[in-house]
Design a protein around this nucleic acid. Structure first.
Length: 275
DNA sequence: CGCACTGTTGTCAG
DNA sequence: CCTGACAACAGTGC
């Protein structure tokens, strides 16, 4: 379920629930989720570890362990369900972590795109996947000037495609990139290199604003099937373009359009976002 | 039934 | 290098 605001919301929810707990057992119901190690070795490393903290880097969740980190990415539909006692896993639950106090944490993922892998304290930030990420969007090193320079080298890419590239800008996914470009008044198919410094700064400011507001509202809950983990955001009520094709623009009343760009559904207002 | 679509990203070919 | 297409998977809706 995740872009940066949803992942941040999950981290905030899980942090008080799992911090300080020690792993007693791990059941791997589908090993496809695990990367890098055999399921057996992976489980062996985890058992006995205490979760010291839950952090976020981009769209990754970092479980800080006594030794190293468990790095988790939810991709399209990954979810964590914490339970106070033993609970029968629901459909599409692939990993069950049992703590020494008998509480559990279930990883559920309908499409099985999500991943979990182990990293040491030394290598976590210097090896993929985290080493491939740009700075956090709230980092002061992310300036309009730096972004403008980087985008200026992308001869043929559309601005939307460039912003979805996590090595260029971290945290935006298909919802928030469309919202960012609407707020900045930039058409999604504009060539990244064609944006002026002033336009790039506007994009940066709006991206940070959208991400911040979405975090405050607990993220967006789009395809709203019930989540037992209680993570249901309300930011979907504040969306200007995503999922609003055919509806009137909240700013000018023009009909919101939807097109295909780089294989992704792309929503925009043809009046507010001129080419 | 068939096909398009879905909050992601790693891989591969040109 | 850069870029776009596609795959990984399961479900929903038309």
């Amino acid at each position: 379920m995740p872009e940066l605001p949803e992942v941040e919301t999950v981290c905030r929810r899980l942090r008080p629930v799992v911090s300080g707990k020690t792993i007693q057992a791990v059941d791997v119901l589908d090993s496809k989720i695990i990367r890098g190690l055999d399921a057996e070795e992976w489980v062996h490393h985890l058992v006995g570890e205490t979760i010291m903290d839950v952090e976020r880097r981009g769209k990754f969740i970092l479980f800080k362990l006594t030794n190293g980190y468990l790095v988790s990415h939810l991709r399209m539909e990954g979810k964590f369900f914490p339970y106070e006692t033993f609970t029968e896993p629901v459909k599409h639950t692939h990993i069950v972590i049992t703590f020494t106090d008998q509480s559990t944490l279930h990883y559920n993922d309908v499409r099985k795109f999500g991943t979990m892998e182990l990293r040491t304290n030394e290598t976590i930030h210097t090896t993929p996947p985290l080493s491939l990420l740009a700075y956090e969007p709230f980092d002061e090193r992310v300036t309009g000037e730096a972004l403008h320079q980087r985008l200026g080298r992308m001869k043929s890419r559309a601005i939307k495609t460039a912003l979805l590239d996590q090595s260029i800008f971290v945290g935006l996914g298909n919802i928030y990139v469309d919202e960012t470009l609407f707020r900045a008044g930039i058409h999604p198919i504009r060539k990244a290199a064609s944006l002026s410094g002033e336009e790039v700064e506007r994009v940066r400011v709006e991206a940070v604003a959208v991400l911040t507001e979405a975090i405050e509202r607990g993220g967006s809950t789009i395809r709203s099937y019930t989540n037992p983990d209680g993570v249901t955001g309300t930011f979907q009520e504040r969306l200007y373009v995503y999922g609003r094709a055919g509806e009137p623009c909240r700013r000018c009343g023009h009909e919101i359009e939807k097109m295909k760009l780089g294989g992704r559904g792309t929503h925009f207002c043809p009046n507010c976002q001129q080419r």
